[in-house]
Deep mutational scan, measured.
Amino acid sequence: KLATQLLVDLAEGCHTHHFNSLLDIIEKVMARSLSPPPELEERDVAAYSASLEDVKTAVLGLLVILQTKLYTLPASHATRVYEMLVSHIQLHYKHSYTLPIASSIRLQAFDFLLLLRADSLHRLGLPNKDGVVRFSPYCVCDYMEPERGSEKKTSGPLSPPTGPPGPAPAGPAVRLGSVPYSLLFRVLLQCLKQESDWKVLKLVLGRLPESLRYKVLIFTSPCSVDQLCSALCSMLSGPKTLERLRGAPEGFSRTDLHLAVVPVLTALISYHNYLDKTKQREMVYCLEQGLIHRCASQCVVALSICSVEMPDIIIKALPVLVVKLTHISATASMAVPLLEFLSTLARLPHLYRNFAAEQYASVFAISLPYTNPSKFNQYIVCLAHHVIAMWFIRCRLPFRKDFVPFITKGLRSNVLLSFDDTPEKDSFRARSTSLNERPKSLRIARPPKQGLNNSPPVKEFKESSAAEAFRCRSISVSEHVVRSRIQTSLTSASLGSADENSVAQADDSLKN
């Protein structure tokens, strides 16, 4: 292990032709098999893994070397290190390495390699500790012929580059190093199909959405987006994914797998022009299946994007999809995704031109529960009313008269009656009930004795009459309010007539 670390330190600071010789020695160290011998017992696995620490030291050392060589000349050094790393990870899946030390190597290698970024000039870069990406002036992410390196360097940008540029090249004859992302992409596909350690798979799935944002990485080298989509959909639809995973937390289920895969599918929607129609349908189907899991909100957001990006695919699945959405409970976490999906859909009339009455009724059935102001915040309630109004205007004229009683009944049950079921009123009724029952229970537990009763009969009569009056008032709060309003209006009217009579009498006395 110490000798391997010494080789790594020497290679990191070497800029001459001896660098390749040092890498040859490190490569021989990495070539050791990580498969346990067949006769190895389970209690000896930890000791055997400790004997392979030099392999881990070599791989982690290459990660440090690549981070240094990416910004220094010659660029061919970075290319050689990158290829060695990718080849080593491929061996893991070729020979099915399952030892804990092998999983640790893959975890740290993917953690580093999935941080690679590219700008519009195809320059590769890595983020620093502050998250700012520094791009290399010597390494690009696409394949290029050595003699055409300078031509590639002087080509115009596709868009303004992001991030601070690296140091300027030493001279005009500098050759750019090619670090094609397709090599890593193929290893990522192998990981999605064969990885057995949940920690490694979770890391890859968590980092892929951010990497897919940099389309330069994908399009400048032959990366098959179709295969990526197929691998992701197979993970969700195939039963073998959960069987092969180990190291998963207790209670791990298909729902947890959906939570990890759906963000990658959402990021892949922007590549729909490069996906086969069959793959697009598979993607939409997987998102529909996710509606029954805890990732339902993410799936609804993804389907909203699909309705804009892939209208030809979503239009066929939309009638059944809208009916499925009615089975989702009206909760605060689902309110905004569902209502925004319906609001977006209302502005795309070509998608729902074939809707029948059942689909329009489903839209109103989804939106009406969110009009309850005692359960949802003001934004959700306003958005629900907006969706109902928009869809009522957009639905066909023959359907409107049939939906009017349905909508008014839903609004009455969710908006008007919600004020009668407020917690304050319920607590008031509970308190009044307890007050009504309390005197009775006290009389049963403690019967009054005439000799020891010091309270006069008049006081008892007053208290009983007050309790009886309170019971009468607490029967119905709404009736009490109505009666008080009527009494107030009658009182004001009587006072007004009394004032008029007094004024008339005063005038008569003055005349006399």
Rank of each mutant, 00 (worst) to 15 (best):
M144L: 11
I101S: 02
K153F: 13
G125V: 02
C229E: 03
R134G: 04
P164W: 13
P161R: 14
E243Q: 11
K56G: 07
Q194W: 12
C229N: 02
P74C: 02
P74T: 03
D226T: 08
V55T: 05
L236C: 12
L52C: 14
S159T: 10
L158F: 11
A78T: 05
Y138P: 02
P100V: 02
S120T: 08
L116S: 02
K193D: 14
T220Y: 02
R186I: 04
E145L: 11
G149I: 11
L121C: 12
L228Q: 00
P137E: 06
K199Q: 15
L52S: 06
S150Q: 12
Y138A: 04
F219M: 11
G247P: 05
L121R: 07
P157Y: 11
D142F: 02
W198M: 01
M235K: 01
R123G: 02
L85V: 08
P239I: 07
A102T: 04
V86P: 00
L52G: 05
T57M: 05
P157N: 11
G177E: 15
C233K: 02
L201I: 06
H88W: 01
V140R: 06
R117W: 01
V216S: 09
S230I: 06
L126K: 04
V132G: 10
G131E: 04
Y82G: 01
L91Y: 07
Y97R: 01
K152L: 10
L116D: 01
L201F: 02
V64N: 15
S182V: 06
K153T: 12
S211N: 09
F219T: 14
R175E: 14
S136P: 02
P180I: 01
S103T: 09
L116R: 02
S182Y: 08
L66W: 04
D130G: 06
L176F: 14
G177V: 11
V225H: 02
K240F: 10
F252G: 02
L203I: 10
M84G: 03
Y93K: 01
E195K: 00
Y71D: 02
P165S: 04
S234L: 07
P157R: 09
L73A: 13
A75G: 08
S103Y: 03
V140D: 03
S96C: 10
L176G: 10
T241L: 08
E195P: 00
H88Y: 01
L99E: 04
S104Q: 14
M144F: 12
S150D: 13
A78I: 03
E195R: 00
S211H: 06
S104R: 06
S120V: 08
V81P: 03
M235I: 10
G149Y: 13
L115M: 10
L91W: 06
V225F: 03
Y82L: 04
L115P: 04
T72W: 14
R207C: 04
Y143N: 08
S96D: 13
T241K: 04
S51C: 11
E210Y: 07
V81Y: 00
V179P: 02
M144Y: 12
I105R: 00
P74W: 02
F252A: 04
V225Y: 03
G61Y: 00
Q67E: 08
V216L: 05
L188C: 06
V59L: 03
D130T: 06
Q90Y: 08
E83I: 06
S221V: 04
L236Y: 03
P222Q: 08
A58K: 00
P222H: 06
L184C: 07
L115A: 14
C139L: 12
L121Y: 11
S49R: 02
L201Q: 01
L121V: 08
N128F: 07
V140A: 05
A50H: 12
N128M: 08
S234H: 09
W198K: 00
C141T: 06
T241C: 12
G125C: 04
S49F: 03
A75I: 12
V179A: 07
W198S: 01
L124G: 02
P249Q: 08
F219N: 13
H95Q: 11
L232I: 06
S196T: 11
L183N: 10
T98A: 09
T154V: 11
S196W: 14
S51K: 09
R117N: 03
S234D: 13
P127K: 09
A102Q: 01
Y82S: 01
T220M: 03
L73M: 10
L126S: 05
P164I: 12
R134Y: 06
P209K: 12
Y181M: 04
V225A: 05
L242H: 08
L205H: 00
D54H: 03
A102G: 03
F185D: 01
E53T: 05
L201R: 00
L60G: 13
V187F: 01
D226A: 07
E53I: 06
L217F: 07
S237M: 12
Y143W: 12
P157Q: 12
S211P: 05
S224W: 04
T220Q: 04
A58C: 05
K152P: 13
L115H: 14
K193V: 09
C191M: 03
V132S: 14
D54E: 04
S211I: 13
G131Y: 03
T154E: 13
S182R: 03
G238V: 06
S224Q: 04
L124K: 01
D130N: 09
S150T: 13
R175D: 09
V140P: 02
V133F: 14
R186Y: 07
H122G: 08
D54P: 04
R186K: 11
Y71H: 05
E195I: 00
Q227H: 10
T241D: 05
L121P: 02
Y143P: 08
V64E: 15
D197A: 03
W198R: 00
R244F: 03
L73E: 10
E145H: 08
S224M: 04
T220H: 04
F135I: 05
A58Q: 00
T57H: 07
I105A: 01
V140L: 08
H88N: 03
R106C: 00
R246P: 02
L208I: 04
L228T: 01
K199P: 13
S103N: 09
A231I: 09
P137S: 09
R123H: 07
S178W: 04
Y71R: 03
G125P: 01
L116T: 04
M235R: 03
L66M: 10
P157F: 10
K129Q: 12
S87N: 12
L60A: 15
S120E: 13
L116G: 02
G163T: 10
L60W: 09
S159V: 14
S49K: 03
I105H: 00
A231N: 06
L201C: 02
S237V: 08
I89Y: 00
H122P: 01
L184P: 03
R117M: 01
S224H: 08
K199H: 14
S49E: 14
L62S: 07
P137M: 04
R80G: 01
L60E: 14
S211Y: 06
S150W: 13
Y143M: 07
L85K: 00
Q190R: 06
E250A: 10
E147F: 12
Y181A: 03
A173Q: 14
S159E: 14
V225Q: 02
T57Q: 10
L176P: 13
L158I: 11
E210F: 09
E53F: 03
I65S: 02
S120A: 12
T220L: 02
S234R: 07
L205T: 01
L183A: 10
R207H: 08
P209I: 07
F219Q: 09
Q190T: 11
L188R: 00
L189K: 01
M144R: 08
L203V: 11
T57C: 10
R123A: 03
M235L: 11
T98Y: 07
H95Y: 08
D130I: 05
K199S: 14
S178N: 14
T154H: 10
Q190S: 12
P160Y: 07
K56Q: 08
V200F: 01
V187T: 05
S178D: 03
C139A: 06
F252M: 10
A231H: 06
K240L: 06
Q190I: 07
L232G: 00
H122F: 03
G149E: 12
N128T: 09
R175T: 14
Q190P: 01
L228R: 01
R213N: 08
R106T: 00
L99W: 02
L115R: 14
V140T: 12
V200K: 01
L158T: 10
S49A: 09
A78F: 06
S196N: 07
P164R: 12
L205N: 00
K56Y: 11
P161T: 10
G149N: 12
A118M: 02
L228G: 00
I101D: 01
R213V: 03
V64Q: 15
L242M: 08
K129D: 13
R175A: 10
S104C: 10
Y82Q: 01
S150E: 13
S51M: 09
L217C: 05
S96K: 09
L73Q: 14
K129S: 13
L201M: 06
S230M: 07
V225G: 01
S87H: 12
V225R: 01
L205Q: 00
